[in-house]
Simulated scan of single mutants.
Amino acid sequence: MTTELTAPDLAELQRRAADRAAARAGGADKLRGHIVCDGLVRIFKTDGVEVVALQGLDLVIDQGELVAIVGASGSGKSTLLNILSGLDVPTAGIARVADYDLLTMSARRRLRYRRHTVGFVWQQTGRNLLPYLTALENVELPMRLAGGRSRTIRARARELLDLAGVGYAADRRPGQLSGGEQQRCAVAVAVANDPEVLFADEPTGELDEATADEVFRTLRTINAELGVTIVVVTHDHAVAAQVSRTIAIRDGRTASEVRRTARVTGDGRTELVSEEYAVLDRTGRLQLPATFVEALSLRDRVRLNLEPDHVEVRPAAGSRESGDAR
């Protein structure tokens, strides 16, 4: 699938984000594995009943990436977000963000992690902003709580609101802002203390399509200009065109990825080329996309055939025989 881009296109924003991220990390050779999950397990126990929300999830996100994690309700994406943001502790496995081990860090270190290393944007706009403060004061508040210098706080708050595209609303309270304006202000609040990672939980879930595009435009700008790693969790697959990488979670595991790279056509136009990948875990298991399974009526068992450069997956005998999945 290809999509023609307009300036500044996604490819240019990706390049700028990578440059900023490399500067933050101290060199391009230090960018790998900003967020790492390996065999991540989370089990909830309620009234003697165990619910396995994450079943050995594997995930690697590089510094400076803008990634969307998608999945149906109950897939485990919200549990993953809570763990990565420091709000929950996994049962087993490895979960690391920057230099923090999220399984073993102390309560004091976890508090510091949540204050300085990560930022968070909630779906409900009312959770992101204090209603009795102006947009400018909301952005200033995290910096004041962190002991920032008064002379620089206001200037940075205005700069962040401008970067989010809502500088004109600096003196308005949340009740005077639209839902989209509130979420863009919330993004500015979330990056006020210059976090390494920004997590957003369904940030466009209560917005119409046009307004959601504006919020994603703000996230792309923040990613490109500040080099912040951004992870957006959503059930909306329409975000696919907004980010360079979309990771699908199903049944508590990473199931597939879509990656988008820029390609220059013969006539000089820039196209975004999308490729879908299945995620192969350490035991060799993978989940085929549901659309592939339905298209070929795959059930129970499938036939495998190893070719020199690919593996064929075909319906078993007695099933529909047309086509294959490679």
Rank of each mutant, 00 (worst) to 15 (best):
M1T: 11
T3D: 14
E4F: 13
L5N: 09
P8E: 12
Q14K: 15
A18R: 15
A22Q: 08
A23W: 05
R24W: 06
R24M: 10
D29I: 09
L31D: 01
G33V: 01
I35H: 09
D38V: 11
G39T: 02
G39Y: 04
L40F: 01
R42K: 15
I43L: 02
D47T: 01
D47F: 01
E50G: 06
D58S: 14
V60H: 13
I61V: 15
D62E: 15
L66Y: 10
S75L: 11
T79D: 09
L84A: 09
G86V: 02
D88G: 05
D88C: 07
D88T: 09
V89N: 06
T91F: 06
A92T: 01
A98L: 04
Y100P: 00
L103D: 00
S106E: 05
R110A: 13
L111V: 13
G119Q: 04
Q123N: 08
N138R: 07
L145C: 09
R151T: 12
R151C: 01
A155G: 08
E159V: 06
L161M: 07
V166E: 08
Y168F: 14
Y168D: 15
A170C: 09
D171T: 12
D171Y: 08
R173L: 10
S178V: 03
R184I: 01
A186N: 09
V187N: 08
V187M: 05
V187G: 10
V189T: 08
V189L: 06
V189H: 08
V191G: 11
E202Y: 03
L207E: 10
A212Y: 05
V228L: 01
T229C: 01
I230E: 00
V233N: 03
H235E: 05
H237V: 13
A238Y: 10
Q242V: 02
V243I: 10
T246D: 00
A248Y: 04
S256F: 05
S256G: 11
E257G: 01
V258A: 12
R263W: 03
T265Y: 05
G266F: 05
T270I: 12
E271S: 11
L272Y: 04
V273K: 08
S274N: 02
E275Y: 02
L280M: 10
R282Q: 09
G284V: 02
L286F: 13
A290Y: 06
V293K: 08
S297R: 15
L298D: 04
R299C: 10
N305C: 06
N305P: 00
L306P: 00
E312R: 14
V313Q: 09
A316W: 12
G318I: 03
R320M: 05
A325I: 14
A325T: 11
